[in-house]
Design a protein around this nucleic acid. Structure first.
Lengths: 151, 151
DNA sequence: TGGTTAACGATAAAGATTCCTGTTTAGTAA
DNA sequence: TTACTAAACAGGAATCTTTATCGTTAACCA
């Protein structure tokens, strides 16, 4: 689920509003995150961005990703492969995980979320304050070439 | 949620039934996984087990964890910190993630699971076959000293 | 009890992330 | 526009995490 990427001035505005300096590197990284429906690792971004910007440093990517997470412009993705992955999609949503291709697909369903939230609110979890709920749906993409469509 | 640890003969039986050789290392690692309510990384297991078994190799722990996952005796835990973690609790269940202490707490709720499953079954997800559903509940442990109890 | 082979220990190598330092650049105010 | 300052960056070293290699050991079976 890749929504239409915001243009550069919107990205710059987002970065500025977060209190971070608007640098070329941050713009490029945030743009790259918007331009893919993958859930990129630092290494992925480095490979993609190095082509147009050979001077870009891998350390900068790691630091930038941390900053963007801290400011709430992106979020970390939960996964099982021991690699840090990021998601530019910050609205509450869940993920489909393909066990075979390791692909992670966004899955947004406000109705399901409110269903779960209302169920949990009547349940008592002592000594824990819930901030966010996400669903992991593990399984298989049946035809890897084709896209996964949720109706 | 740590259930009562099975005794050694049960652990040996589990390993044997999976088709793996029943070695001292595998027994020790599987026992350590049962004896904690953490969701251990390889490093954690190495530190704990090295005390009684100084010859145990870190590589053996990694290989054993992979084998146990492959045979279905343990499972990988989804997390956001870029470290592989494992869970001996293979029944369907979810996790509470404490954002501050990074603790992961098991959360079992069959009623919630069937609620989600029945919701998703009426929803159509084309080209994807669901195998497992887990919930990630992120938040904060309010009083870190005390335990989190679900009622 | 001995033979066979998977598993192990030790260590090297690879992969992922963080840290460090001198240089550059964005934001600010003159 | 220019100069100043602090934050950010590039490059590379260091650290942490995981995997691979290979000679040795031990579990399993006849």
């Amino acid at each position: 689920m890749r929504s239409i990427s915001p243009n550069l001035s919107v990205l710059k505005e987002k970065i500025a509003q977060s209190g971070l300096k608007v640098t070329q590197q941050r713009i490029a990284i945030l743009k790259a995150l918007h331009d893919t429906d993958e859930h990129p690792s630092a290494e992925y971004l480095y490979k993609v961005l190095s082509q147009d910007n050979p001077a870009l440093s891998l350390g900068t990517i790691y630091k930038t990703l941390d900053s963007l997470v801290e400011k709430g412009l992106i979020r970390k993705v939960f996964c099982a492969d021991g690699i840090k992955r990021f998601d530019v999609h910050t609205d509450p949503h869940s993920h489909l995980y393909c066990q075979e291709s390791q692909k992670i697909i966004d899955f947004e369903d406000p109705e399901l979320e409110s269903l779960i939230k209302s169920y949990l609110s009547q349940k008592k979890i002592n000594n824990f304050e819930i901030e966010d709920i996400q669903l992991q749906i593990s399984g298989k993409i049946l035809e890897p070439g084709k896209s996964v469509v949720i109706q």
